[in-house]
Design a protein around this nucleic acid. Structure first.
Lengths: 246, 246
DNA sequence: CGAGCACTTGATCGCTTTCAATAGCTGTGG
DNA sequence: CCACAGCTATTGAAAGCGATCAAGTGCTCG
C-alpha cells in the first residue's frame, strides 16, 4: 500500500475532510487546525497507544484500521471499538489512555497535540459540535454492540459483524442496487473473536457453517461475498429491512 | 417517596443542578433553560419513551431510576443504559427514539421541548460542552460494560454490577473510610439479568453463591451489604485498587 | 385464605469453550 | 527447489458453564 505523503497533505485535499472531527470547520478554523497538526504512520500490528499511558495527542485515523481493546489481568481481551478512517482517537480532557489502540493494517493518523487542540476546541464550536455528534454515533454503535455481546448466539454474532462491515463498505462504495456484495475482512479470526466475545475456534466454526449454508462465500481466508444481504440480516437476528439505510 | 413539587422547582434549588446537562450554565443560560422546561413524573414500571416513537422532548432524570433497553423481535432484551439522577435522555438531532426508556422506580424528569433545546444548544457552548463531557463518560461506561458482557463469567458479571452500584452509592454518600458498604439494589433479578446478558435464574444462583462465600450479605431481597469491597473487586476480575477512585 | 409476583433451587440439556491435532500459506535458508 | 519454521485457520472430541424446564418458597395484597 502506498500511504499519502506524510506531513504534506493540505486539509482541503484530505480524504476524510468531510467526515472527521474537522468536517464542519470553515477555512479559518481549518487553518488553525493545520497549524497544530502532524501526520504519523504506524505499521500493521504496531501499538498506537497503550492503556494507562500519558496521552500527548488526539487525532483522526486518515487511512487504515485500528482496534480499541480492553484487557483483564489474566489476558482476556475485549475489543471495544473498531477505528476506521475519519474516526477520532483520544479524549479531550483526560490525560491517561483508557484503552489499547493497535494498528491492524498500516495506519496513517492526523495528530494534534492535546493541549493546543483542547484550547482550540473551546474557541471553536464547530469542532466541539462535530465531536459531540461523532461521540453520540459511537455511543449508539456501542449500544448496538452490547445487544450483540449480551444476547446473540455465536452464529448471530458472526452474521452481525459481517453485516456491519458490509454496510460500512456499502456506504463507501455507493453503487450496487443488487442484493449481493463483496468485501475484504479487515480482521483476523482472533480479532473477530475479541470483537464478539467468542473464541477464535468458535468464530472459525461459525464462518464454516455460514458458508456451508450458503449465507456467505469465501475466497481465500479474507474475501467474503454475501449473495443475499437480506438473508444475512435474518441470520443476524435483525430486521431485514433495517439494512442499508442506517 | 415524596416527589418534589412539580412545575415549581427553581433551577438554583435543583438537586441535579451541578451534575446535569445544565451544570456549566450561568444565570442567564439557566434562565433560558428555565423558560422551556417542564417537569413530568412517571410511575414505577411506566414507559417513558418507546423505541421508534417520535421524540418530542429531551431531558434530565431529576430523581428515580430508569432503564434503557433494546429488544429483538423474539423478545430477547438487553439493557444498554441505567439512567440515574442527572443523566440525560434523548439525542439532539435525532427524531425517532432508538431505545426503550422505562421507569424502574418513580421517576421525575426535567424535560425540554426538543426543538427549542436544540436551538438553545447551538447558541450556548456551555450546554454543548457539558453534553459532550457526559456523552464521553457514557461511552466509557458502555465500553467497560462491553468487557463485562463479552468476557466475564456469570459470577464476575454479578460482582461487577454490585461493584458499580456500590461505587455510585459511595460517590453520593462520601463518608465511610471503612472497607464495608451497604446499599439497596434498585433492580429486580430480571433487570439485573437484562443488564448482564444472563437469565434471571443464573443471577439468582450467583447471588446465592456470593452470599454463601461471604462476599456479600443479603437482608430481604434488595438490601446488600459488602463486608470487604476489595474482595468484591477481586471477584469482579478488576484490579482491587481501582476501587473507589474512578 | 388464596392469587399473584419475585425469587430460589433442582435436574437436565446444549452451546460454546477447551484441548488437541491437522491443514494451508508465506518467507527463509540450505 | 525443497525443507522447515512460524503463523493463521480449520476441524474433532470432550468438558463445562449457563440456559432451559420445572417445582417450590416467601411475600404482599385482595
Amino acid at each position: 500500500m502506498n500511504a499519502p505523503t506524510i506531513a504534506s497533505v493540505n486539509c482541503g485535499d484530505c480524504p476524510i475532510r468531510h467526515r472527521a472531527v474537522c468536517a464542519r470547520c470553515d477555512a479559518d478554523e481549518l487553518g488553525a487546525l493545520d497549524a497544530i497538526k502532524y501526520y504519523r504512520t504506524y505499521e500493521s500490528g504496531q501499538p498506537i497507544i497503550w492503556s494507562g499511558d500519558q496521552m500527548n495527542f488526539v487525532g483522526s485515523v486518515v487511512s487504515g484500521i485500528a482496534t480499541l481493546t480492553q484487557t483483564m489481568e489474566d489476558g482476556r481481551t475485549q475489543m471495544v471499538g473498531l477505528l476506521l478512517p475519519s474516526d477520532f482517537v483520544g479524549r479531550p480532557g483526560r490525560d491517561g489512555a483508557a484503552y489499547n489502540v493497535v494498528a491492524t493494517t498500516e495506519v496513517v493518523m492526523c495528530c494534534f497535540r492535546k493541549k493546543p487542540f483542547e484550547e482550540l476546541m473551546v474557541r471553536t464550536p464547530h469542532i466541539a459540535h462535530r465531536l459531540l455528534e461523532m461521540t453520540l454515533d459511537e455511543l449508539d454503535a456501542a449500544r448496538e454492540w452490547m445487544l450483540v455481546l449480551g444476547r446473540k448466539t455465536a452464529r448471530e454474532k458472526i452474521a452481525s459483524l459481517l453485516a456491519i462491515i458490509a454496510r460500512r463498505d456499502a456506504s463507501l462504495t455507493p453503487k450496487n442496487a443488487t442484493n449481493t456484495m463483496s468485501f475484504d475482512l479487515p480482521l483476523t479470526r482472533e480479532a473477530m473473536a475479541d470483537y464478539l466475545g467468542l473464541t477464535l475456534e468458535t468464530v472459525s466454526r461459525q464462518m464454516s457453517a455460514l458458508k456451508k449454508d450458503g449465507v456467505i462465500e469465501l475466497e481465500g481466508k479474507r474475501r467474503v461475498t454475501v449473495p443475499d444481504m437480506g438473508r444475512l440480516m435474518e441470520e443476524a437476528g435483525d430486521d431485514s429491512d433495517g439494512g442499508l439505510i442506517g
